[in-house]
């Protein structure tokens, strides 16, 4: 049972990092980014490259993946979205644009994995890092590292958003872009910031992901569903929504499914993704703005004095 809990927490931590990016870019740019999962896979490949060619342990290469991921996020904004936003494209067009971008990233990942294979003389289209993981007082390294990443990210975001001038401007332009613009705040900066962070966090999550599951170029296609579910259940209009949603979805996918399997038999286990999807549907139907959009949450927020 304890293993189920540990596994669920690691997966939730990664989901939180991925969903944070999705929520942030949704708030600033107004587009649900279908390429978010591919960012993570690119992160996995960056970590793999550093491991194979520079013999850098994936945990140690996290700063590098963070920066490269940020650049990837910025590229996404500049190449795929900005030209369309300039032309006043509709939200559906932006969504389709992120899909097209996703396809490009998929192709690049595949081509790159083949190039890497020819250099390392190993098949690099499918890989795991799990055998590289360490243990600390019986706890797997991936649990410690992913939890630390989430904590650091939350702390960093809190300090940035609530303790600096830039942060205040950021929050203002996230909450009400047109008003913020009228007040002389540069909305473009917020967008750049959010895309940088979105890519960076996703790539970091991506370099931890191979400790949990095998990576193939197609992996992104499968995990994007969970990321969306996390962001939506938590609430797309609030950064903290990703945090709450990430844990709810991550835990329900493994822990809740497992508990169900005790009562309904092992056949239920294959439907774990169905469960997160159903939770997403129910959330949307009951309260579309997600958990952070409820009255209760507002009270909590006031109490926390945020």
């Amino acid at each position: 049972m304890i293993d189920v809990v540990i596994g669920a927490i690691v997966w939730s931590n990664l989901l939180v990092l991925l969903a944070l990016g999705l929520t942030m870019t949704y708030i600033t740019t107004g587009v649900p980014n279908f390429a978010q999962a591919s960012f993570a896979i690119i992160g996995s490949y960056i970590a793999l490259t550093l491991l194979r060619l520079a013999e850098l342990h994936p945990y140690l290469s996290l700063p590098v993946t963070f920066i490269l991921g940020g650049i990837l996020g910025l590229l996404t904004y500049y190449l795929a979205l900005k030209p369309l936003i300039k032309r006043k494209a509709s939200i559906e067009m932006l969504m389709i644009a992120t899909l097209a971008w996703d396809l490009i990233l998929f192709g690049i990942t595949g081509a790159y994995s083949e190039l890497l294979s020819s250099i390392t003389k190993k098949t690099e289209t499918l890989f795991v890092f799990t055998y590289l993981d360490f243990e600390f007082y019986g706890l797997p390294g991936r649990l410690i590292v992913s939890s630390l990443l989430v904590l650091l990210t939350i702390l960093g975001l809190y300090l940035l958003l609530y303790k600096t001038k830039f942060g205040i401007a950021l929050r203002a332009s996230m909450e009400n872009p047109s008003l913020a613009e009228a007040m002389g705040i540069n909305v473009e900066n917020t967008r750049l910031f959010s895309w940088f962070l979105s890519g960076a966090l996703a790539c970091m999550a991506g370099s931890v992901l191979p400790f949990l599951q095998e990576i193939v170029p197609q992996t992104g296609y499968f995990i994007i569903v969970s990321i969306f579910a996390a962001s939506i259940v938590g609430g797309l209009y609030h950064i903290l929504g990703a945090l709450i949603g990430g844990y709810i979805i991550g835990i329900s996918e493994s822990l809740f499914t497992y508990v169900l399997s005790i009562f309904l038999g092992p056949g239920v286990l294959v439907y774990s993704k169905v469960i997160s999807l159903l939770m997403m549907i129910v959330t949307i139907l009951i309260h579309p703005k997600g958990i952070t959009g409820t009255e209760l949450w507002r009270k909590v927020e006031r109490w926390l004095n945020l």
């Binding site: 293993d3 599951q213 995990i223």
Partner: peptide, 12 residues
């Protein structure tokens, strides 16, 4: 996809 988190299966 195949599971990311195998703990439910392991426990079972």
């Amino acid at each position: 996809p195949s599971p990311a988190d195998w703990s439910p299966y392991i426990t079972k």
